[in-house]
């Protein structure tokens, strides 16, 4: 038993002092090296803008040894099947312009570093965009092809491919300049207590990480590992699909994947992980 408050008064003091900032951070201390060569920063000092957290941890630290092991070698990582599928799409001509991704970008490796800085302010669009939006932008504007569904398998596989070539690079999304107002909107959403259970992202992932909520070991809800292959639904999952699930679990009306709210939330949550390595496609339960 972790908590045994013997005295009502002692308990009231703890409450008054604010339980909010004390989390039992039992992230494990394992090290993640992928394929014996890509060092992943899974624990590091929190970015300056984080007020209530000193150290940031990849969700990898909160998973069992068995789940962690899947990610150490690409042959064992079921998320790499999606990456392979996306590699085919990368080279596949589609749409009225007779182009594939490769026609403009060459090898997928040319995307190294991209995942680390997204979501990012897009001058032309005048708004913060996500990687998935950029992929669809290329498809509709440059290839003359149909959009892919925002959280669909084809899109999520492609985002996984683009992530995979940035693995090991530290996440470094910009939160100032033209991105600042979006970032602030995301921060507000992060702390908003939604639904009949009145829980915010922060309640679970800032105040309570390291603790069990029923059978789940709460992580910091970082997205450096996205897209993430979940053993639970045996597919790659996008960050917005995960956000939707977490909001739904507060008995709330969710936002839609691809909505302005989730774009802002993605920017904000990504910024909480500035300094952790890009890790996607990761494996979680």
């Amino acid at each position: 038993m972790k908590n045994t408050f013997k005295l009502k008064t002692a308990f009231a003091c703890v409450v008054a002092a604010g339980l909010a900032s004390s989390a039992f951070a039992d992230a494990d201390t394992d090290k993640l090296v992928i394929n014996g060569e890509i060092d992943i920063i899974t624990t590091t000092v929190a970015p300056a803008h984080l007020e209530n957290v000193d150290t940031i941890y990849s969700g990898w630290h909160f998973r069992s040894d068995e789940t962690q092991a899947f990610q150490m070698d690409d042959f064992d990582n079921p998320g790499m099947i999606g990456v392979e599928k996306a590699s085919e799409n990368w080279d596949t001509v589609d749409g009225s312009e007779g182009k594939s991704c490769a026609s403009c970008h060459g090898e997928a490796e040319s995307m190294a570093g991209v995942r680390a800085v997204y979501p990012k302010y897009n001058e032309e669009k005048g708004k913060v965009t996500t990687l998935a939006m950029e992929v669809n932008n290329c498809r509709t504007e440059r290839m003359g092809a149909e959009k892919w569904k925002y959280t669909g398998g084809t899109m999520t596989d492609m985002v996984a491919l683009i992530s995979s070539v940035s693995r090991g690079m530290p996440v470094n999304v910009a939160i100032d300049g033209p991105a600042q107002s979006t970032w602030e909107q995301g921060k507000e959403l992060y702390y908003a207590r939604t639904g009949q259970l009145e829980l915010s992202c922060a309640n679970c992932h800032e105040d309570s990480y390291g603790m069990m909520i029923r059978a789940d070991h709460l992580s910091q809800g970082q997205i450096n590992g996205f897209p993430t292959y979940r053993l639970k639904n045996t597919k790659l999952n996008s960050a917005h699909a995960r956000f939707k699930g977490c909001v739904r679990d507060t008995r709330a009306e969710t936002y839609n994947p691809g909505s302005d709210e989730f774009i802002a939330l993605e920017l904000y949550v990504a910024s909480r992980g500035n300094g952790l390595s890009v890790e996607g496609p990761s494996v979680r339960n």
């Binding site: 639904g195 009949q196 739904r248 008995r251 709330a252 009306e253 969710t254």
Partner: peptide, 12 residues
Amino acid sequence: FYRLGDAYTGKA
């Protein structure tokens, strides 16, 4: 409540 949902459906 803020953004009250219909149980766990994700709908309003």
